[in-house]
């Protein structure tokens, strides 16, 4: 088990963000020719004054016009815990980079050494982004793009479902903005896969909703699996095939829900 908070399917969400394009802000401020790094700091201070601030530093070339400084979430001011009044939104990136309560943006030509950039929130810098507990990767890189992933919302683990009754399996899928091409459902331990219906109305960064109708014909335990495939053809691996990293970062194993047909 990787150390750290055991999130399970927690800490994910999909909201409508409105804000100012970061590129517009930078153009207004005027960047020097040798500008290279951009650092973001927020108002969320640690309890102890010597604890370093959470500063996220990115290379300017990583940022495109989709990056915004958001002042609205779902049509209202940002809720306090979501980073009121301003929050960095980097569609397609994991949200450890989405600095809340944004207070400072600093552009430099030199890289500053920062704990949250140099030590924490990093993945192995190799082809499979993996390592072993005994042999941890020496070369690492910051977490950036999201892996293709799907989550079954209904039914839930441990539910009892009626035999021969009409069941609609539902959930969401997402990736780093290439877009979801298919979500496949298996009810026979991954031997066969059938395509779910998709609902994509909110752009390629947003959750894709999926639904699949199914009638359980056998009594007893039933495993329902969901696998998303994005437009690049990247698909989720089985959880047993997931390669390890020290933080359990970017986990995107195929979701399995176990129910009982009665």
């Amino acid at each position: 088990m990787a150390g750290g908070i055991q999130w399970d399917s927690g800490a994910m969400g999909c909201a409508k963000w409105k804000g100012v394009r970061l590129s517009d802000l930078l153009n207004k401020a005027g960047l020097k020719k040798d500008a290279h790094w951009i650092g973001f700091n927020g108002k969320d201070k640690a309890a102890y004054y010597e604890t370093p601030n959470f500063v996220r530093e990115l290379e300017l070339e990583e940022l495109d016009d989709h990056v915004i400084v958001a002042y609205e979430m779902n049509g209202e001011d940002l809720p306090y815990l979501n980073g009121f009044p301003l929050r960095l939104v980097i569609p397609g990136y994991y949200s450890d980079s989405w600095v809340k309560m944004l207070s400072n943006i600093t552009v430099t030509n030199k890289y500053k050494s920062l704990f949250f950039m140099d030590v924490a929130y990093r993945v192995p810098d190799n082809a499979t982004e993996s390592e072993t507990p005994e042999n941890k990767a020496k070369k690492t890189k910051p977490i950036t793009n999201m892996n293709v992933k799907s989550i079954i919302g209904y039914p839930e683990n441990g539910m009892k479902l009626y035999h021969n009754a009409h069941l609609v399996i539902r959930g969401v899928a997402f990736d780093d903005g290439h877009g979801i091409r298919q979500v496949m459902i298996s009810t026979d331990e991954g031997k066969t896969w059938n395509e779910a219906l998709l609902k994509q109305e909110d752009g390629r960064y947003a959750f894709t909703e999926f639904r699949f109708t199914y009638k359980p014909t056998k009594y007893g335990k039933l495993n329902i699996m969901a696998k998303a495939i994005n437009r690049l053809g990247n698909e989720q691996p089985l959880s047993k095939d997931i390669l390890w990293n020290h933080g359990g970062y970017k986990y995107n194993g195929i979701d399995v829900v176990e129910v009982e047909v009665v």
Binding site: Y48, E50, T51, P52, F115, V119
Partner: peptide
């Protein structure tokens, strides 16, 4: 140790 080294726990 991380709390002491990186987060500066006293």
């Amino acid at each position: 140790e991380k709390m002491i080294t990186h987060f500066k726990s006293p």
